[in-house]
C-alpha cells in the first residue's frame, strides 16, 4: 500500500514537468530521421539495399539501443534533479525510510523509461511504414518481429532509465550525472571492448540489439539477464549511498 502510494507520487513527479515532452520530441525527431532515411537514403552503390529484406527493415527499426541511451539520460536527469531542486527533502520527509522512496523512484523512472522506449520504437515503426510506400519496397517485417522490436525497446528503455537513475543517485548533480551516463553508455563500452575484446558482446547497446532480434552475440535470455545487471548494479549502489548520506 505504501509502495503503491509512493510510486504514484513518483509518477506524478515525472508527468508534471516538461521533461517527458522534451524526450518525446527527441523520439519524434528520431522517427522523422528514420523516415527521411527510408525516402532519401541510399547505400554506397546508390541502391536501396538497406530496406530490401525483412531483416534489413527490422535492423532499421531496431530501436532498443537508442531506447537504452535516451532512457538512460532520462533516468539520470530525473533522479539527479531531485537533489538539484532539493525536492528530495519533502520526499524523505514523507517517506523517512529512504529505501522505500528510492525503490519507488527507481520503479517509476524504470516505467517511464519503458514507455519512452516503447513509444520511440512505435514511432520509428510507424515512420518507416509510412515512408516505405515512397520507395519500391513494401513493409516486410512480420507482426511477431514488430512485437519483438517493441518489447525489446520497452525493456531496454526501462533498463537504461534505471541505470541512469542509479548514476543520478550516486552523483546527484544533473551536469555530473549526464556526463556520467554518457560515459557509461557511450564512451566506456567501446574502450572496454578494445581493452578486453571478449567483453564486447556484453556491452549494453550490443545486448539491446540482441533483444531486438538483429544481433546474436549472446543468447536472448543471457542478454536479458546481463542488461538487468547493468541496470541494477548502479541502482543498488545509489540506494546504498542514499541511505548512508545526510540530506544537505
Amino acid at each position: 500500500m505504501i509502495m503503491k502510494r509512493l510510486i504514484r507520487s513518483e509518477l506524478r513527479k515525472l508527468t508534471t514537468t516538461r521533461m517527458p515532452w522534451a524526450f518525446l520530441a527527441v523520439l519524434v525527431v528520431l522517427a522523422g530521421i528514420n523516415a527521411f532515411a527510408v525516402i532519401a537514403g541510399t547505400d554506397f552503390d546508390g541502391s536501396k539495399a538497406f530496406i530490401a529484406t525483412e531483416f534489413d527493415q527490422q535492423s532499421l527499426m531496431a530501436f532498443a539501443a537508442n531506447a537504452l541511451a535516451i532512457a538512460g539520460l532520462f533516468g539520470a536527469i530525473a533522479a539527479a534533479r531531485e537533489y538539484g531542486h532539493h525536492t528530495v527533502v519533502p520526499t524523505f520527509l514523507a517517506s523517512p525510510r529512504r529505501s522505500r522512496a528510492v525503490v519507488a523512484q527507481l520503479s517509476a523512472i524504470g516505467l517511464g523509461g519503458g514507455v519512452l522506449g516503447l513509444v520511440g520504437a512505435a514511432l520509428t515503426v510507424v515512420a518507416v511504414a509510412l515512408a516505405l510506400p515512397a520507395t519500391d519496397f513494401g513493409f516486410m517485417v512480420s507482426v511477431g518481429n514488430v512485437t519483438q522490436i517493441l518489447a525489446a525497446s520497452a525493456f531496454a528503455g526501462a533498463a537504461g532509465a534505471v541505470l541512469g537513475a542509479g548514476i543520478g543517485l550516486l552523483v546527484r548533480n544533473v551536469g555530473g550525472t549526464v556526463t556520467g551516463a554518457v560515459l557509461v553508455l557511450f564512451i566506456a563500452p567501446p574502450l572496454i571492448a578494445q581493452l578486453a575484446t571478449e567483453t564486447a558482446s556484453w556491452m549494453p547497446s550490443v545486448l539491446a540489439t540482441v533483444l531486438t532480434g538483429v544481433g546474436n552475440e549472446v543468447s536472448k535470455p543471457a542478454a536479458l539477464v546481463a542488461l538487468c545487471v547493468w541496470a541494477v548494479v548502479p541502482a543498488i549502489a545509489g540506494l546504498l549511498a542514499v541511505n548512508r548520506r545526510d540530506v544537505v
Partner: peptide, 25 residues
Amino acid sequence: AMIESDAFHPGRSGRNHLRILADAT
C-alpha cells in the same frame, strides 16, 4: 516540516507539488 526554503521544482505548479506530497502520504 518546512526545512528548505526552496525545495520545489521551478517548472511544476504549486498545486502539483502538493498533489505529489498528498499521493506519497
